[in-house]
Simulated scan of single mutants.
Amino acid sequence: MRIHTGKKPFTCQQCGKSFSRKGTLNRHMGIHTREKPFSCQQCGKSFTHKTDLERHMRIHTGEKPYTCCQCGKSFCQLGTLKVHMRIHNGENPFICHQCGRRFNHKGSINRHMRTHTGERPYICPHCGKSFSQQGNLKVHMEIHTRAMDHPV
């Protein structure tokens, strides 16, 4: 009935977030205690919730249970499929408030914002030249790699 009424009588004393079930509140408390009792036996990474470990295990098993019905591409997380679907439906929910351009990924708008701020966080360790995008630094690094392979 709480689903229908929207009642959430179990409230976290630390952050005030409310839940409809006591078990959900108990699971939530792991966030505050930083307790991570669920560990991956393959890589040692730990998680607060069992479901997070189960989702993580797909990295090791290669399982991709979420498939795009339009192009057939598969994903290990539902959220990744949802983001992928923006390609097909043309949804661009991230808007640059400076120039109005729209983007379908948060990372894309973050990268775009550097054109406005002038931020260049990727720095070449060989010559100190900086770049706004990691890919541009990688391309630049080939100059130094070629120079090492073909000394003058």
Rank of each mutant, 00 (worst) to 15 (best):
residue 44 G to D: 09
residue 40 C to L: 10
residue 42 Q to C: 00
residue 92 N to V: 08
residue 99 C to S: 01
residue 100 G to A: 05
residue 66 Y to S: 01
residue 78 L to A: 13
residue 39 S to E: 11
residue 69 C to N: 15
residue 72 G to I: 00
residue 76 C to K: 10
residue 33 T to Q: 11
residue 47 F to Q: 07
residue 38 F to Q: 09
residue 80 T to H: 13
residue 54 E to F: 13
residue 37 P to T: 06
residue 70 Q to H: 14
residue 40 C to S: 07
residue 77 Q to Y: 12
residue 65 P to L: 08
residue 88 H to M: 00
residue 105 H to C: 10
residue 66 Y to P: 05
residue 71 C to I: 10
residue 40 C to D: 11
residue 32 H to D: 08
residue 101 R to C: 07
residue 105 H to T: 06
residue 43 C to W: 02
residue 35 E to M: 07
residue 64 K to C: 01
residue 72 G to D: 05
residue 40 C to A: 12
residue 64 K to V: 00
residue 45 K to C: 09
residue 43 C to K: 01
residue 55 R to Y: 10
residue 32 H to G: 08
residue 92 N to L: 08
residue 99 C to E: 06
residue 49 H to E: 15
residue 102 R to M: 11
residue 80 T to M: 05
residue 86 R to G: 10
residue 63 E to A: 15
residue 41 Q to C: 12
residue 73 K to I: 01
residue 62 G to C: 03
residue 73 K to C: 00
residue 84 H to M: 01
residue 98 Q to Y: 01
residue 63 E to M: 11
residue 76 C to G: 12
residue 33 T to N: 11
residue 67 T to F: 03
residue 96 C to A: 04
residue 63 E to L: 09
residue 75 F to T: 02
residue 95 I to Y: 03
residue 69 C to S: 15
residue 60 H to S: 12
residue 82 K to S: 15
residue 74 S to Y: 00
residue 74 S to D: 01
residue 72 G to W: 03
residue 61 T to I: 11
residue 35 E to D: 14
residue 62 G to F: 06
residue 83 V to D: 13
residue 50 K to R: 14
residue 62 G to Y: 00
residue 98 Q to E: 12
residue 46 S to D: 09
residue 88 H to E: 03
residue 37 P to C: 05
residue 34 R to K: 13
residue 71 C to T: 09
residue 66 Y to V: 06
residue 30 G to R: 15
residue 42 Q to M: 12
